[in-house]
Design a protein around this nucleic acid. Structure first.
Length: 474
RNA sequence: GUCUCCAUCGUCCAGUGGUCAGGACACAGCCCUUUCAAGGCUGCGACACGGGUUCGACUCCCGUUGGAGACGCCA
């Protein structure tokens, strides 16, 4: 069997859609698993709406996801003028014909039919024009489009996900493949490209099923063997409608900018509509390549569940290597205006580790660790009244004195001081821990206190305690 | 409206004729605990409906209902 060749063919609309990303992923998984080739082709036949920047964004998104393509990017626009090369041959066989109906005429006839609540389909007005009529139109320079002549019978194909799907040809209209300005229509360009690029498997969204019937006829006219088709269920929004820009976040890069890890995102979207069987959920791209199969792809559309993404992301953050985590989080510190350049890398790793399992998104991390890097601007109001009471401040005074005498200032030594003091005064650990936390971070929550103190270092701990003790903050 | 696709907890998935219908997210409670989070445990919660086929249907067939998608000289 020939080497499988798959492709992702997005149109450059300005962002990489979540649905497109998942389609790309499934294409990628199958291609890799079968030792095939994964091709990127940009569908930019709509020149008006396409631009270099938009293409860049798509490439950036794919790169972020780690879905590296083997060939491309190819641009439909590069081949633009060649699509019509096929027309003379197709005309000879009678498979296509000129349609002189203007869009306006079409519209009028369509409205009449629709008014009767009937389904509109091109009425084949130009399908049976005589040679003379055609020549007359041609001579008078009447513009025309090319339509495919759909024969009687049925059209069917064996979908890798849905099985055999069939449609009566009477339901397929004589559709246009070339506009009156001599440019190709999507359905035509796709098939020509897929044939040229020797694509063996077309994997795309469910919403293309109806196009597939039309495209099969183009393959027939081109005398080409159709590829295998796999139509993926759509990704839905909370209202179970096709996920769109209007109803939620659909841009892949927007998730990156929120602080979603690419591994988590890929893992998450893979699971909308696919699962290797059993309970396995957390998987790397490589594992998915091994496990993937179209038999296991669901037929039902799946809702994009932000809560689950959030959970999965937090899981990935927790398990991320501190060094990698720091690297990927740096932009978020910058965005939050927090300068981390004065802190040693070793300390930064510790800081990462201390909040790893608390963050849902990377953008949470700067907020969670802010107090390590800058002076406290405000103290939590509730925490102040609850923990920074006069009696607690008295304790802090003593503790501060004792901490001053600690030579090796680390988690264990600091803990020893607190334990001893609590025992001495018959206090609960919480009685002195919470006030200290308030003094050091201004917050009532955060990493383990003694770890926090170790990370901050003796000097800073003492100065912040002093600040609380000496201020009339209450 | 026509055609096509689809139908298991609120959500994502397991299930392929005989299961107490399983897991995950979410939600609630409890435990652990220096806080938050994490973790552990428990609970809540589904086979859309109606006919068949079968000794036996969530599973197979038909219909109904419901949902989605497509019906462009867009992609």
């Amino acid at each position: 069997m020939a080497q499988p060749r798959l492709r992702i063919a997005p149109s450059p609309t300005g962002y990489l859609h979540v649905g497109t990303a998942r389609t790309a992923l499934y294409n990628y998984l199958y291609a890799k698993q079968q030792n095939g080739v994964f091709v990127l082709r940009i569908e930019d036949t709509d020149v008006e709406r396409s631009s270099k920047e938009m293409t860049e964004i798509i490439i950036e998104g794919l790169k972020w996801l780690g879905l590296n393509y083997d060939e491309g990017p190819f641009f439909q626009s590069d081949y633009f003028k060649h699509y019509t090369d096929y027309i003379p041959e197709l005309e000879k066989t009678g498979g296509i014909y000129r349609c002189f109906c203007t869009p306006k005429e079409l519209d009028e006839r369509k409205n009449i039919v629709m008014a009767e609540k009937k389904a509109w389909k091109y009425d084949r007005k130009c399908a049976h024009l005589t040679k003379d009529e055609i020549n007359k139109n041609l001579e008078s320079k009447k513009p025309f489009a090319w339509r495919v002549r759909i024969p009687e019978g049925k059209t069917n194909y064996d979908d890798m996900i849905h099985g055999i799907i069939e449609k009566d040809n009477s339901e397929i209209e004589d559709f246009i493949i070339v506009r009156s300005d001599n440019t190709p229509i999507y359905n035509f360009a796709v098939v020509v490209d897929d044939v040229r690029m020797k694509i063996t498997h077309v994997v795309r969204g469910d919403d293309h099923i109806s196009n597939t019937f039309k495209q099969i006829h183009i393959y027939r006219l081109l005398n080409a063997e159709p590829p295998r088709f796999a139509h993926l269920p759509l990704i839905l929004d909370e209202n179970k409608a096709k996920l769109s820009k209007r109803t939620g976040t659909v841009s892949v890069l927007a998730f990156r900018d929120m602080g979603v890890l690419p591994e988590a995102f890929v893992n998450f979207i893979a699971l909308i509509g696919w699962n290797p069987g059993g309970d396995k959920e957390i998987m790397s791209l490589d594992e998915m390549v091994k496990l993937f199969s179209f038999e296991k792809v669901t037929k039902k559309g799946g809702v994009f569940d932000y809560k689950k993404l959030e959970w999965m992301n937090s899981k990935y953050i927790t398990n991320y290597d501190s060094k990698k985590l720091l690297e990927i989080t740096k932009p978020f510190f910058k965005e939050a205006g927090i300068d981390i350049s004065q802190v040693s890398e070793e300390t930064l790793f510790k800081i990462m580790d201390s909040v790893k399992e608390k963050a849902r998104y990377l953008k949470d991390i700067p907020q969670l660790t802010k107090f390590f890097f800058e002076e406290i601007k405000e103290y939590d109001e509730k925490g102040k009244s609850k923990f920074l009471t006069p009696d607690r401040i008295e304790h802090l005074k003593v503790l501060k004195e004792r901490l001053m005498n600690v030579e090796i200032f680390n988690h264990d030594s600091v803990e020893a001081v607190y334990k001893a003091y609590a025992e001495e005064k018959s206090l609960k650990g919480a009685d002195i821990i919470h006030p200290t936390r308030m003094a050091l971070s201004g917050k009532t929550e955060g990493p383990s206190l003694f770890l926090m103190m170790e990370i901050m270092g003796k000097e800073r701990v003492l100065s912040r305690l002093t600040k609380i003790i000496e201020s009339d903050i209450l």
